[in-house]
Amino acid sequence: MAKVAFLLASGFEDSEMKNPYEAVKEAGHETVIIGLEKGARCDGKKGTISYTADLGASEAKADDFDAVIIPGGGAPEALRVNDDVVRFVKEINQNDKLIAGICHGPQVMISADVLKGKEATCFIGIRDDVKLAGAAYHDKEVVVSENLITSRTPKDEPAFIREILAKLS
């Protein structure tokens, strides 16, 4: 079974965390929530759910994980400016491990400079940023490109989750 990191800060899109997180756990994989600080409370932007960070980004080591999932909403903006978050995602990518981002999640991928030469999708509001980061943008429910999986919005969650579980198995 895989050990999967979920990168989280307050303001995340509730369902984009809850649904993949529960699906990955139900599939038998180990889940670890990585926040800006260990023990930090992360609240969903709709207020339906909150989580506590199991690990701070400064403690996260790519060698300890098989994959990282980045929910969207406002959280990626807070995560992408944290040097430890960016380092962690870069290291995951250098080891060709799975990086999955939905909605605004690819903002963290942009800051970690992992999109060059890949294909991706995202929330339309960051489409130009994804293109400028070197990815070929596709307006599709899910795009799998080597070790990356990206999706656009909560309505794409079933396809996003399906591809994550396929890669982890």
Score class of each variant (00 low, 15 high):
Pro76Ile: 02
Phe65Leu: 01
Glu77Thr: 08
Ala78Gly: 07
His29Ser: 02
Ser50Pro: 04
Asp64Ala: 12
Lys46Gly: 12
Asp66His: 01
Glu37Asn: 14
Val86Tyr: 07
Lys25Glu: 15
Pro76Arg: 02
Ala57Gln: 10
Met17Gln: 14
Asp14Cys: 07
Ser58Lys: 15
Glu26Arg: 14
Gly73Phe: 03
Gly44Asp: 06
Glu22Cys: 00
Asp63Cys: 00
Lys25Tyr: 12
Asp83Phe: 03
Gly11Ser: 12
Val81Asp: 13
Glu91Ile: 06
Gly56Met: 10
Ala67His: 00
Asp14Pro: 04
Ile33Phe: 06
Tyr21Phe: 14
Val85Cys: 10
Ala67Tyr: 00
Gly73Pro: 02
Asp63Asn: 00
Asp66Arg: 01
Lys45Val: 10
Lys18Asn: 13
Phe88Leu: 14
Glu26Val: 05
Cys42Phe: 02
Val81Leu: 15
Asp66Gln: 00
Ser10Cys: 08
Gly72Phe: 01
Pro20Val: 09
Gly73Leu: 03
Met17His: 15
Val24Asp: 11
Val68Tyr: 01
Arg80Gly: 11
Ser50Arg: 12
Thr52Tyr: 08
Glu26Phe: 05
Gly28Asn: 05
Ala75Lys: 01
Lys25Asp: 13
Ser50Lys: 13
Ala27Ile: 08
Ala9Asn: 14
Asp63Phe: 00
Ser10Gln: 09
Glu30Tyr: 00
Ala78His: 12
Arg80Val: 09
Pro71Thr: 06
Ala27Cys: 10
Phe65Cys: 02
Cys42Thr: 05
Lys90Ser: 09
Gln94Ala: 12
Ala60Ile: 11
Thr48Asp: 11
Ile33Tyr: 03
Ala27Met: 10
Thr31Arg: 01
Gly56Thr: 10
Glu77Ile: 05
Phe65Ile: 02
Ile34Phe: 06
Glu59Phe: 13
Ala57Arg: 11
Glu13Val: 06
Leu55Met: 15
Ser15Val: 15
His29Cys: 02
Thr52Asp: 05
Ala9Met: 11
Phe12His: 11
Gly74Cys: 00
Thr31His: 01
Leu8Glu: 14
Glu30Ala: 04
Pro71Gly: 07
Ile92Gln: 09
Tyr51Asp: 05
Val68Ser: 01
Gly35Asn: 06
Lys90Ala: 06
Val32Ile: 13
Ala23Glu: 05
Ile49Leu: 15
Asp63Thr: 01
Gly39Arg: 11
Asn82Gly: 06
Ser58Asp: 13
Gly73Ala: 03
Glu37Thr: 12
His29Pro: 02
Gly35Leu: 04
Lys38Ala: 14
Gly44Trp: 05
Ile33Asp: 03
Ile92Ser: 10
Arg80Phe: 05
Ala27His: 10
Glu16Val: 14
Gly47Trp: 09
Asn82Phe: 07
Glu77Phe: 04
Gly74Leu: 07
Gly74Pro: 00
Asp14Gly: 04
Glu77Val: 07
Asn93Glu: 05
Met17Trp: 13
Gly39His: 10
Gly39Ser: 11
Lys18Ala: 15
Lys38Val: 04
Leu79Asp: 10
Cys42Gly: 02
Ala23Lys: 07
Gly11Val: 04
